[in-house]
Amino acid sequence: MDNSPSIFEKLGITFWLCLMWIVLVVLLALFADLLPLPGADVMDWDHPAAPPGTVGTLQSLIASDANPTEIVYFFGTDTMGRDILTRLIYGARVSLAVGLITPLIGLFFGGILGMLAGFYKGRVETIIMAVMDSILAFPGLVLLLAITFFLGPDLKNIIISLGFLTIPSFARIARANTLTYSQRDFIQASRMVGQNDLSIIIHEIIPNIFTPMLIYALLVVSYMIVAEGSLSFLGLGVPSPTPSWGGMIAEGKEVLEETTHVSLFPALIMFLTVLSFNLIGDSLRNLLDARGGQL
């Protein structure tokens, strides 16, 4: 057993690179306020749409400071002279909030509904799954637009409506996994002896279905980042002064003929983040499959 590859080796270098990228993005987003950055909506009218590396002067990095400060725009500025790097970091907050919280809503509610359906079967299952299927029968983006239209677009509403949309697919996965596990002899036996249903669910079912659900949740994270991006791109995401990647890409599109960097950087960052979540999910799934194969 000594020379069997460690988890570290099994997951491969790509996995760890992706994880590092995501940790970096998360840390930057969390501690954005502590970084020496101009505010996300500080405009430098002398340097609109300036290319990466331009050096500009800002009047008030700290409000009380009268002396202009020099600043390097590493990723250039957008059409209103705002620092793209800063906006990317603050935009990550929106993307990550939506991407990471939404699946938790789906995981929680979908997981409970799916487990109930898979554990009790019969009428409970029929009703739960019928409701889930009708939600799935809606085209997602349209339903999302409808909900945010009627609720009004702010971060909370976007998270709630996206989270709502992910419940059915989580419920399906939880149900399928619960079905297979509750067929197992030891669970049938526990039920026979009259062990409390809740304790069976907590001690036997949840630990067993948790891993596949979590891996699916990683996939949902990238879907959600893209969905939020789409909303913002359409101008229906978080309202205007708050930066978001999708909104930045939409702004950059307007000046695409003159300069590419305004949309290129947000697009690239978004691509890398989504790709990282996909690759992480994929590696974990492969690891799990391989382990299943050896059993």
Binding site: G229, A267, L275
Partner: peptide, 22 residues
């Protein structure tokens, strides 16, 4: 293909506009 799964449709649209029309 795996990489392209990480490209949202609006990014793809802008990339294609840049390549094919600009």
């Amino acid at each position: 293909a795996f990489g392209m799964m990480a490209v949202p449709v609006f990014v793809m649209g802008i990339a294609l506009i840049y390549i094919f029309s600009i």
